[in-house]
Amino acid sequence: MKTYQIHGKVISDIKIISTSTGTPFARFTLEHKDKPYNCLIAGQKAFNFLYEVKNGSFLLLEVLPNERKQLVVKQYELKQKLTTSFQYKGLHYPHKKFNR
């Protein structure tokens, strides 16, 4: 089987579609040259992928095409990670009351 390297942007949410067999499968859509591709990633990589990659991330993938014209991911590299800002404004607990 011939492997290909493609790069693109994730344009859908990553969904875990099967864990009943013991092997997790994740599904997402990648946009490469303005064309969407359905991609699958299997095994423990699926959980790591779900944790690292978000909608809008840029990836470099090493893939194998299957008979349904989906791309099965063998390896991935995160090119541009989206940054999420976390704004912490301090504790929201009330002040302690002192009895005099």
Rank of each mutant, 00 (worst) to 15 (best):
M1F: 09
M1P: 02
M1I: 10
K2C: 04
T3P: 00
Q5E: 15
G8I: 05
K9R: 13
K9I: 10
K9M: 11
V10A: 01
V10P: 00
I11N: 13
I11M: 08
D13S: 11
I14M: 01
K15M: 14
I16C: 06
I16K: 04
S18T: 07
T19S: 15
S20M: 15
G22M: 14
G22N: 12
T23H: 06
F25E: 03
F28T: 06
T29A: 08
T29M: 09
L30T: 01
E31G: 02
E31T: 06
K33S: 04
D34N: 14
K35F: 15
P36F: 15
P36S: 06
P36N: 13
N38W: 10
A42T: 05
A42F: 06
K45N: 02
K45H: 02
N48E: 07
N48K: 07
F49M: 00
L50E: 06
L50R: 12
L50I: 01
Y51L: 11
V53R: 02
K54Q: 15
N55P: 00
G56M: 08
S57D: 12
F58S: 01
L59C: 13
L59Q: 02
L60E: 07
V63L: 04
P65G: 03
N66K: 00
R68N: 08
Q70F: 09
Q70W: 09
L71S: 01
L71A: 06
V72N: 08
V73K: 08
K74R: 08
K74I: 04
Q75W: 06
Q75D: 07
Q75I: 05
Y76R: 03
Y76A: 03
E77T: 10
E77W: 03
Q80L: 05
L82V: 12
L82K: 14
L82S: 13
T83N: 12
T84I: 09
T84W: 07
Y88L: 11
K89S: 12
G90A: 04
L91A: 13
H92S: 08
P94T: 01
H95V: 14
K96F: 13
K97I: 12
